[in-house]
Computed example of a mutant assay.
Amino acid sequence: MTRAVRAQWPVMLVGLIFAAAFALAGANFWRRGSLLIGIGVGVAATLRLVLSDDRAGLLAVRSRGIDVMTMTSVGAAMVYIAWTIDPLGTG
């Protein structure tokens, strides 16, 4: 168990960020939650970029370039959406 936790700490860190984001979204702080999802994907992209394939664990899906490009695009889109959409119920 301890070896598995040490080996998969990058994906566990991203999972904790996502859990916090979903908790915020579930508490009707959907903009903050979606912003945190975008930040979490950005953290995943950064970890995939700086860690070796062995150390990246489950974050390594395809080649490093494809993974980083995909995660960066998705993270940037999430941050843009969270930043630009007006909150519900306001002018």
Rank of each mutant, 00 (worst) to 15 (best):
I17S: 04
V11W: 01
G40E: 02
A60I: 07
L24C: 11
V43Y: 03
P87A: 09
G75E: 05
G89I: 08
D53Y: 01
L13D: 01
G33V: 11
T90E: 02
V68E: 10
S73G: 15
A76I: 12
R32F: 10
F22D: 06
R32D: 14
F29T: 04
W30N: 06
V43R: 08
L88C: 03
A44K: 12
G91V: 11
D67N: 03
P87T: 09
L49T: 06
A23K: 06
I17D: 03
A60P: 03
R62T: 13
I81H: 00
N28S: 15
W83A: 15
G15R: 10
N28H: 14
M12N: 02
L35W: 04
F18H: 07
G75Q: 02
T90F: 08
W9D: 05
I37L: 15
I37V: 15
A82M: 06
S63D: 14
D86L: 13
V68G: 12
M71P: 02
S52H: 06
L49R: 10
F29I: 02
A44N: 11
V50E: 05
I39Y: 01
L13Q: 08
S52L: 05
V74F: 15
L13F: 12
R48N: 15
S63H: 10
R62M: 12
A45D: 07
I17M: 12
S63A: 10
R32Y: 12
V50F: 15
T46R: 03
L24E: 13
L35M: 15
I17C: 05
N28W: 12
P10F: 04
F22L: 15
P10D: 09
M1S: 14
T90A: 09
L58T: 05
L88K: 10
W83K: 05
L88T: 12
T2A: 07
R62E: 12
L49V: 03
S34G: 01
I66R: 11
A21R: 06
M71C: 02
T70K: 01
T70H: 03
D86N: 13
M69S: 15
D53E: 14
Q8R: 05
W9G: 08
P10N: 07
S63W: 07
R64M: 07
M1W: 12
D54N: 12
A27I: 04
G38C: 08
S34M: 14
A60R: 15
W30Y: 11
D67P: 00
A21G: 07
T70N: 02
M71T: 03
A23L: 13
A56R: 02
A82E: 03
A82T: 01
A45R: 01
F22K: 02
F29V: 04
S34C: 07
A76S: 14
A20Q: 08
R31H: 14
G40H: 06
A19Q: 04
A20Y: 10
L49D: 09
L24W: 08
L59P: 06
F18K: 01
A7N: 14
V11L: 08
L35H: 05
A76W: 03
D67R: 01
R3H: 01
G15Y: 10
L13P: 01
P10Y: 04
V61P: 02
S73N: 04
A60T: 11
V74R: 04
R48D: 15
G33I: 11
T2C: 00
F29E: 15
V14R: 07
G38T: 02
F18C: 06
